[in-house]
Design a protein around this nucleic acid. Structure first.
Lengths: 71, 71
DNA sequence: CAAAAAAGTGCAGTAAATAGCATTTTATTT
DNA sequence: AAATAAAATGCTATTTACTGCACTTTTTTG
């Protein structure tokens, strides 16, 4: 699913920008390391709560917005 | 969780704006009616895929963005 | 107000997410 | 190249999301 790939990409980028390992991020976001690994490697389907904890730890937030028409 | 409430609110608003029932939205988004009901009544913790299907049907999309500092 | 429609809830089975642990693979550093 | 660190994967137990069905409560309509 093309759009969801973007979310993964964003998380990975942001984590690297913060210069933390998966292990560290898993700890500070209070989600299992396995869960984070699965998400980042595109093999996961996290719950909203998991995604929320994760984005929170990254100084980000989950949102939904009306789709842009083009692109 | 204050922020997640907003997502629920947005979905409900958008659905009403489109003037469709939960039943109809559940059908077009291909998720169970029960699942939608639980989400809208704040008793759910949907997976990203479920949220994606739902927002898609509403002409919306899930995204993550850097948090604004104030508010 | 009565009837109909829509939304919410209890129960229960199935499928899948979460999580830890051990191990392997890949990337980084010395 | 060897050692170390980080990331990925197989296995597995536990929890919980997803779903349908039947029923109740609330809202809307005639």
């Amino acid at each position: 699913m093309m759009h969801l790939e973007d979310l993964i990409h964003t998380v990975k980028e942001r984590r690297k920008m913060m210069d933390v390992t998966q292990e560290t991020l898993a700890e500070i976001s209070d989600i299992g390391l396995r869960t984070l690994k699965q998400f980042e490697s595109g093999k996961g389907n996290p719950t909203l709560l998991t995604l929320h904890k994760l984005t929170e730890a990254l100084g980000m937030e989950v949102c939904i917005q009306v789709k842009k028409l083009n692109e």
